[in-house]
Design a protein around this nucleic acid. Structure first.
Lengths: 209, 209, 209, 209
DNA sequence: TATGAATGAGGTTTCATTCAT
DNA sequence: TATGAATGAAACCTCATTCAT
């Protein structure tokens, strides 16, 4: 490993440290209430240093989502070629969403929030590209599994992309909805069981009778 | 109509004007980027006047969501006792979500965003109560229809509240997910058709085979 | 009494009501934290009405001080021609200060505060004149008694105005100082006894040995 | 001197610069009319910088008073153990008040104003503690001298704390009173001579005949 | 590369005052 | 004379970002 490469590694590691610190702070405070100083402090760095790794607060925040999206994509893609039934694959998708939710309960809302109005037009093209790339990778993997289901005669012959949207949207929406109710009603731990119910309903609903 | 009553009306109307103006601005800019001055300007009022009707920016913003939630609750409750099949009722729910989406594409994310982390603990108790009230009204109406489905032997015998969560979460999630993709891909108008797919799948999935 | 005169009376009474309400509010909140709306509310009037009786907040506030100063002047002047010893007269002055303090613990600081920097150059000439008039009336009465003391050989032959300043300043200063300590130390009721000590010392100190 | 220490120094110096600038502005405008922007401008800093050194306007203002109180306390304590007569010590106290008055004519009213109603309950505990500490130090020193006078048979056997209050209150009150008249009558420079008269009277009044 | 003090634009909010009724 | 809704100027304060070290 050359010295240049080592430096590159070092830099990536530092970047990840910052992202990890930012995730903690954003999670507790939300995007606007979190300050760069808090994040710097959590990363044991000074505010100025953050700007050596991220163009601005927005891009730091977006990096979180991209990181998660990347992770989500990776996990989802892994499922596609596993030697299990289509039904089980969709069950895995559900578990991936639960894992992500367990990892950070607020990350899904960030994913939605990301490009909705408030969030930026100021994202650099590079970041925007990544966003699209990972997003479509994850989506593509789900579509592939749905197609497999249709091809094997298990699923009804709807537009596969739409069905994938239903899976993704339902999973994410159920997580968010149950989670938001948790905060209102002080109930907990319904997310998992409700997602399981969602899975049952959706898998059943997609099947050819 | 007495003078007092007329003034009361007048005041309510003004409040609604502000809410309407705020909705436009928040929709375009998002909560944090929208300024009270912009909202005042959109309502053709001065900034100070907003504070005669709303305690602060936060409460103005929350009022939007409550308004929608109230509307959503009203529409959803109306469905319950209509003389149509359970299946059609759930179809109506889907349409209500589409209507809300058409009315304001960003409002659903506000509903989620509302009590998630960043959004406030500073909401006055009164506002908080309203939030809970309308939220549980809407949810309750969906549960009632699900129960009807179970009782008539149409639906599988799962926990009705969980099934209602799946409906609400899926509908909202699909809307948000497809909408967020719309912004990324500049595609449009898939929301409706995807929601229809979602309906088919979910209604089918809930049915006893 | 003519109708004009009656109206005049009525107006004065209303003015006094406002002053009374203002005194309560200013006392608790201080000049800047007190709002015209609070004062109006305390006077069971609307904000706009206050401006029919007072040019602005400043002048309303100043009117309080003038009222007190007028009262103080009246009380002090009454002492001058009473058929009691000089010593007793100065004792009466002390009691007048205590009465004023009992009536409103914050009024003395207002009297000092009145024309010090922050308080206005915007006072109307009329108000300014009154201020001077009542102030010098009160001061003049004290001077007269001091002079009487000097003339009768009781007091040392210092500049009478200076001695009167010492009396006034000491009385007021002791009240303020002890009162401000009361707030820091949560002690109470030392004002009276300390003022008595002050009296003893001052009267003794002014006497010819 | 290490680099850390140098930075510490630098920081203190900056703080003092701000306090000095604030004193000028507060002196002319009073607490409420003075704006943070003016103060920043006077200190040749930007508004935001002030908040790096002081939590808010209130605490900046209080720091002035504490600074003076500290100075007052130091000066007064120095007097206690000097090898001069009790009478001269009390004369020194008078001079200290005159010095403070010369340094900033408005500072004494701030000292009174400080904890009276309007001024804050929002002071941080630390600041509050300092206030109490320096205040009681100064007061304690005066008490010590009064006790010395009583013990040596020079002064009458009154409660020493009360006599100290009379000294402090009278000195401060005379300064304030004469100063406030100065503004009304455009006379000047009577403060000193009147305080001298006050001293004569008080010292004479405290003496055993 | 890292720092962190300083910046300063800009936002929310308050409130004395006005004026149409 | 009385009202009170509306005004809008102005203040405090925050915090993303910069830049000299």
């Amino acid at each position: 490993m050359g010295i240049h490469e080592r430096k590159q590694r070092e830099k990536e590691r530092r970047r990840d440290d910052i992202i990890a610190a930012a995730r903690k702070v954003f999670s507790v405070k939300g995007f606007n209430s979190a300050t760069m100083e808090e994040i710097a402090s959590a990363a044991e760095l000074s505010p100025g240093t953050l700007y050596l790794y991220f163009k601005n607060k927005e891009e730091l925040h977006t990096s979180l989502s991209i990181n998660i999206l990347k992770h989500l994509g990776t996990e989802i893609k892994q499922v596609v070629h596993q030697d299990i039934s289509v039904e089980e694959k969709i069950e895995r998708f559900r578990d991936v969403f639960i894992d992500v939710y367990d990892y950070d309960a607020n990350i899904l809302i960030n994913l939605f929030h990301l490009q909705s109005g408030e969030t930026l037009q100021n994202l650099s093209d590079e970041v925007m590209e990544q966003l699209k790339k990972y997003s479509s990778q994850a989506h593509g993997a789900i579509i592939a599994v749905v197609k497999e289901g249709i091809d094997t005669g298990l699923f009804i012959d709807e537009h596969p992309a739409a069905m994938a949207d239903v899976i993704w949207g339902s999973y994410a929406g159920v997580v968010l909805w149950v989670d938001s109710k948790r905060l209102l009603n002080d109930q907990k731990d319904f997310v998992r069981s409700t997602l399981r119910t969602a899975f049952k309903i959706i898998i059943q609903g997609m099947k050819v009778k």
